[in-house]
Lab assay of single mutants.
Amino acid sequence: MPGGGPEMDDYMETLKDEEDALWENVECNRHMLSRYINPAKLTPYLRQCKVIDEQDEDEVLNAPMLPSKINRAGRLLDILHTKGQRGYVVFLESLEFYYPELYKLVTGKEPTRRFSTIVVEEGHEGLTHFLMNEVIKLQQQMKAKDLQRCELLARLRQLEDEKKQMTLTRVELLTFQERYYKMKEERDSYNDELVKVKDDNYNLAMRYAQLSEEKNMAVMRSRDLQLEIDQLKHRLNKMEEECKLERNQSLKLKNDIENRPKKEQVLELERENEMLKTKNQELQSIIQAGKRSLPDSDKAILDILEHDRKEALEDRQELVNRIYNLQEEARQAEELRDKYLEEKEDLELKCSTLGKDCEMYKHRMNTVMLQLEEVERERDQAFHSRDEAQTQYSQCLIEKDKYRKQIRELEEKNDEMRIEMVRREACIVNLESKLRRLSKDSNNLDQSLPRNLPVTIISQDFGDASPRTNGQEADDSSTSEESPEDSKYFLPYHPPQRRMNLKGIQLQRAKS
């Protein structure tokens, strides 16, 4: 015994090295194993092979420090690593049964499904019991997946119906949107047309105001020219009257000059006056001389005659003075006559000038009245044309509004008919989907599995289990394997941990 101590140590070291070499393959693929292994699927088989106990299973599945599946799978690998070579062998058998691809990844061999460990530990009855539990578990999982698949199909059909409904609603909204954009385009076109009409109206108003201003300026210029013409006519008439007055005065002077006595007659009258003065002096001298030589009687007679002569001279002087006064009065009367005649001529000139001015103003008033009548006639014609244009424009607008209203009513009726057609199509689609759903539900009910399987069917299934373990590994792997896509769409199922009653199965096998 003492001599065998070193050999035992060498043997233990060799086993430990082999164990480390075995687990080295697992550690190399630890990331892939932790990512894809579900500990809840492996722990029943590991407990059946007595590699882990209930406490280890509870620690792996329910520990609060292991929230994710990767953490739980890593903890399970750590626990199996502590179990040595047996933990490695049982772990590979569980991978061979549940995850053939991972088994091939770790060992590089094809899975054979021999279950040597569980046969050694529990015997064939334990293997049968384990396989029966796994089959029931798989059936329950398949039923749950079928239910989930039916629910998802129903949800899918519902979503398809909602999608069709949303599509129809979208078509309806597109119809309304198209109608909205069309009405918006019509409104924009009408606004552009309105702005264009306003611009045209403004341009016409500006043109009309400009023409009116030009016409008023032309009328004012015409009036100024007419006033200048009238003033020139007035000056012409005044000059004609002055010329006529000057002509009359010149004719009067000419007549006075023609009626003036001649120079010879004046000289002859002056000679006669001198001769008479000479004779008068001679007679006076004779009379003076006679007075001195005459007697007293003759002197008395001469005195009487002288007195008579003096009286006659006085009378004559009075007559001469009277004649002079009369001549002066006649001259003054002639001057007054000439003055009055001049005033008369001036008044006649003024009267004729005023008459011509009156005629001029009368003509001017007639011209202004004619212009006013023409302006009123043009204004009435413009008003009439404007009223006709406004009436025609309003009539066109009324007809346009009428046609637009008819078009809008027809478009609304068309839209309502399209919407009604879309709604009826939606109703038809809904009815078809309901009919299809009812038909599929009836087919699913016919094809669904019963909840409680008979014992004979279970025994028959387990009677055929042994050949399947040898020759149909691919079928078992397809039913027991969970793909990543299934984990996305289906909830994980945790079967209840219970042991099955095998009395009925044993009785059935005894009868057979």
Rank of each mutant, 00 (worst) to 15 (best):
G5L: 12
G5D: 15
G5F: 08
P6A: 12
E7L: 09
M8A: 12
M8N: 11
D9L: 12
D9Q: 15
D9M: 13
D9F: 08
D9Y: 11
D10H: 12
D10I: 05
Y11V: 08
Y11K: 03
M12V: 12
M12A: 10
M12G: 11
M12T: 10
E13W: 13
E13A: 10
E13R: 08
T14H: 15
L15Q: 09
L15T: 13
L15S: 04
K16C: 07
K16N: 06
K16V: 09
K16W: 06
D17I: 11
D17R: 13
D17H: 13
E18T: 11
E18I: 15
E18D: 07
E19R: 10
E19M: 13
D20G: 09
D20Q: 11
A21P: 10
A21C: 07
A21Q: 02
A21G: 07
L22H: 10
L22V: 07
W23M: 02
W23P: 01
N25K: 14
V26I: 15
V26W: 00
V26E: 07
E27Y: 00
E27Q: 05
E27D: 07
E27I: 05
C28V: 01
C28S: 09
C28Q: 04
N29M: 02
R30C: 00
H31N: 05
H31V: 14
M32G: 06
M32N: 08
L33M: 06
L33I: 07
S34R: 04
S34V: 13
S34A: 13
R35G: 04
Y36M: 14
Y36K: 07
Y36I: 12
Y36P: 02
Y36N: 06
I37L: 07
N38I: 01
N38F: 08
N38H: 06
P39G: 01
A40M: 07
A40C: 08
A40H: 04
L42R: 02
L42K: 02
L42N: 00
L42F: 06
T43Q: 03
T43K: 07
Y45L: 11
L46Y: 13
L46I: 08
L46Q: 12
L46W: 08
L46P: 07
L46A: 06
R47P: 07
Q48I: 07
C49E: 15
C49H: 15
C49F: 15
C49V: 09
C49G: 11
C49K: 15
C49R: 13
K50M: 11
K50W: 06
K50Q: 11
K50L: 10
V51F: 04
V51P: 09
I52Y: 04
I52V: 11
D53N: 10
D53P: 05
D53I: 09
D53T: 10
E54S: 10
E54W: 03
E54H: 10
E54L: 08
Q55P: 11
Q55D: 12
D56L: 07
D56I: 13
E57W: 02
E57A: 03
E57M: 04
D58Q: 09
D58T: 00
D58L: 07
D58E: 02
D58H: 02
E59Q: 01
V60T: 05
L61P: 02
L61S: 01
L61I: 06
N62L: 06
A63F: 05
P64C: 14
M65G: 01
M65I: 05
L66N: 04
L66K: 05
S68W: 04
S68C: 08
K69S: 04
K69P: 03
I70D: 02
I70Y: 08
I70E: 04
N71H: 08
N71V: 08
N71G: 05
R72N: 03
R72H: 04
R72V: 02
R72P: 02
R72L: 02
R72C: 02
R72A: 02
A73C: 06
A73D: 00
G74A: 02
R75H: 13
R75K: 07
R75F: 00
L76W: 02
L76K: 01
L76T: 03
L76V: 01
L77S: 01
L77M: 10
D78R: 02
D78G: 02
D78P: 02
I79V: 07
L80G: 07
L80Y: 04
L80H: 02
H81I: 10
H81R: 11
H81K: 06
T82I: 06
T82E: 03
G84V: 04
Q85H: 13
Q85Y: 14
R86K: 10
R86L: 05
G87T: 08
G87D: 00
G87R: 01
Y88A: 00
Y88R: 06
V89R: 02
V90C: 09
V90G: 13
L92R: 06
L92Q: 05
E93A: 08
E93Q: 15
S94F: 03
S94I: 12
L95F: 13
L95S: 00
E96G: 11
Y98N: 02
Y98P: 00
E101L: 04
L102S: 00
K104N: 06
V106H: 00
V106S: 00
T107C: 00
G108M: 14
G108L: 00
K109T: 08
E110T: 07
E110I: 02
E110G: 05
E110H: 00
E110R: 01
P111T: 15
P111R: 09
P111W: 00
P111N: 10
T112M: 13
T112I: 13
T112N: 14
T112L: 14
T112C: 14
R113Q: 14
R113F: 02
R114G: 11
R114S: 12
F115R: 12
S116T: 11
S116A: 06
I118M: 10
I118C: 15
V119H: 15
V120M: 02
E121S: 05
E121R: 11
E121M: 04
E122M: 02
E122Q: 04
E122N: 14
G123Y: 15
G123C: 15
H124Y: 03
H124D: 14
H124I: 08
E125Q: 15
E125A: 08
E125Y: 14
E125D: 14
E125M: 12
G126Y: 14
G126R: 15
L131R: 06
L131S: 08
M132A: 05
M132N: 01
M132Q: 01
N133F: 15
N133V: 07
N133M: 14
N133S: 13
E134A: 14
E134F: 07
V135H: 14
I136D: 14
I136Q: 14
I136E: 00
K137E: 08
K137W: 12
L138T: 11
L138C: 10
Q139C: 01
Q139L: 12
Q139D: 10
Q140A: 13
Q141I: 12
Q141F: 10
Q141E: 09
Q141N: 12
M142D: 08
M142Y: 14
K143G: 11
K143R: 14
K143V: 11
K145V: 07
K145S: 09
